[in-house]
Simulated scan of single mutants.
Amino acid sequence: MHKIPESVLVVIHTSELEVLLIERADKPGYWQSVTGSLDAVDEPLLATATRELFEETGIVADGATIVLQDWHLSNIYEIYPVWRHRYAPGVTHNTEHVFSVCVPRDVAVTLSPREHLNHVWLPYIEAADRCFSSSNAEAILQLPRHFP
């Protein structure tokens, strides 16, 4: 089954604008925020963001104390050739929808070992510098505009 070329990016941060980055298991040294594709073409973006946040970090967006914020911002980018085999033949671009979530600094982070090796909290500018994805880095740099 091919991946759907529509995904979410979830920037996890504290009120002090420290950002949680996770290191990919399939590409050690590649740091990123939570990302993931829709499971079905009709899956709501908020449902995808909620699911991916939990699957990749164990953090539950309960809608009360931990609330996902939809930035209503989409990026279209070229899929890295190393990952194109996951998509239908001829698919070269993905549409990524940006979300953020503010969490307490001491929130428990439980990584999916199949997907990620390590995590780190960094000030947002340092986090942006560490990301391998330019759209992820740009979203992190926009964080102060989306969090009062």
Rank of each mutant, 00 (worst) to 15 (best):
K3E: 08
K3P: 00
K3I: 05
I4G: 00
P5D: 11
E6A: 07
E6R: 11
S7C: 02
S7M: 01
V8T: 10
V8M: 04
H13R: 05
T14M: 04
T14K: 02
E16F: 03
L17Y: 07
L17C: 05
L21I: 03
I22C: 11
E23G: 06
R24W: 10
A25W: 00
A25T: 12
A25H: 03
K27C: 11
K27H: 10
K27M: 13
P28Y: 09
P28W: 10
G29S: 06
Y30C: 11
W31R: 07
Q32C: 09
Q32F: 04
S33V: 11
S33W: 04
T35L: 12
D39Y: 13
D39V: 09
D42S: 14
D42C: 09
L46S: 11
A47P: 00
A47L: 14
A47E: 14
T50N: 12
R51A: 02
R51S: 05
R51D: 02
L53V: 12
F54E: 15
E55M: 06
E56Y: 00
E56T: 04
E56H: 05
T57P: 08
I59L: 07
V60P: 00
V60K: 11
A61Q: 05
D62N: 07
G63L: 02
I66L: 01
I66H: 10
V67S: 07
Q69H: 08
Q69N: 13
Q69Y: 02
D70R: 01
D70Q: 02
L73Y: 06
N75L: 11
Y77I: 05
I79L: 13
I79A: 03
P81I: 08
P81C: 05
P81G: 02
W83F: 13
R84Y: 08
R84N: 09
P89I: 09
G90P: 05
T92A: 03
T92D: 07
T92Q: 08
H93L: 06
H97R: 10
V98N: 08
V98C: 09
V98P: 06
V98R: 01
S100Q: 04
V101C: 12
C102Q: 15
V103D: 12
P104Q: 06
R105N: 10
D106L: 03
V109D: 08
V109F: 06
T110M: 04
T110Q: 15
T110Y: 06
S112T: 15
S112F: 11
P113G: 06
R114Q: 15
H116S: 15
H116R: 08
H116F: 15
L117F: 00
L117Y: 01
L117M: 09
L117T: 15
N118P: 02
N118Q: 12
H119E: 13
H119I: 02
V120L: 09
W121A: 09
W121P: 12
L122Y: 07
L122G: 10
Y124H: 15
E126N: 07
A127S: 03
A127N: 05
D129F: 12
R130Y: 01
C131S: 08
F132I: 09
F132Q: 14
S133I: 07
S134Y: 08
S135Y: 13
N136D: 14
N136T: 15
A137V: 03
E138F: 12
A139V: 00
A139T: 08
A139Y: 03
I140R: 05
I140N: 06
L141T: 03
Q142L: 09
H146G: 02
F147C: 04
P148T: 07
P148M: 03
